[in-house]
Amino acid sequence: MDAITVVNLVKHYPHTLAVDDISFTLPQGGVLGLLGGNGAGKTTTISMLLGLLVPSSGQITVLGHDIARDRFKALERMNFSSPYIALPARLSVEENLRVYGHLYNVPALKHRIAELAAQFHLGALLSRPAGELSAGQKTRVALAKSLINKPDLLLLDEPTASLDPDTGDYVRSMLEAYREETNAAILLASHNMAEVERLCDTVLMLKAGKIVDQGTPGALIARYGREDLEQVFLDIARREEA
């Protein structure tokens, strides 16, 4: 079964067409990258997948559930992380994880928090208020929160933003291991092209709300005759401006 099926998805605001008739699928166990410049429609698409935003038209099915009618059943089995959304600053890291563990009805929560603390090196941070952490530490906590319910589908917006190269690499390895272990599907929006090349099976290139190209990172690089995905991204971004 596909983790995500999107058919003819459209979102228009009074003065903007944010997403313009896009369709795609993400198989269970796959990793899909959404690439595009600012305003390309990545955040809008993710928001619609999460049920935060109602599409103007089109259909979204997540983990077998129609998001328009049954989003809570899907939300129980998915999770999300973004450095642009914070966790309550006055709560300690452990309290934050406990709140989300309860929200996602996680069994043996204490044990799960200990597991995540070990995986993300959060042991020394558990008792510290989330607001006192560095940007990189906050990103690690947000990622731990996103895995608290062992989701079948993980939506990640810039998952390694603010992380130093060593920690960023560690997190990417963790995500690869998590996918191997659980066969979870991952949808990733990132501006880090090396990260997308490493993690993603398929990449959707978005521009002005449309999918302008798609394929495996290798196939896209070959099609554009470039050396890496960053050059492909620049080619597409500058295509009409040239």
Binding site: F72, L75, F80, S82, I85, L87, P88, Y100, Y104
Partner: peptide, 18 residues
């Protein structure tokens, strides 16, 4: 308002919380 001030609504409304 506490949820707005802590920029936490985005996490809450994508959780299974009704």
């Amino acid at each position: 308002l506490e949820e707005i001030w802590s920029r936490n609504l985005g996490h809450i409304f994508v959780s299974p919380l009704r």
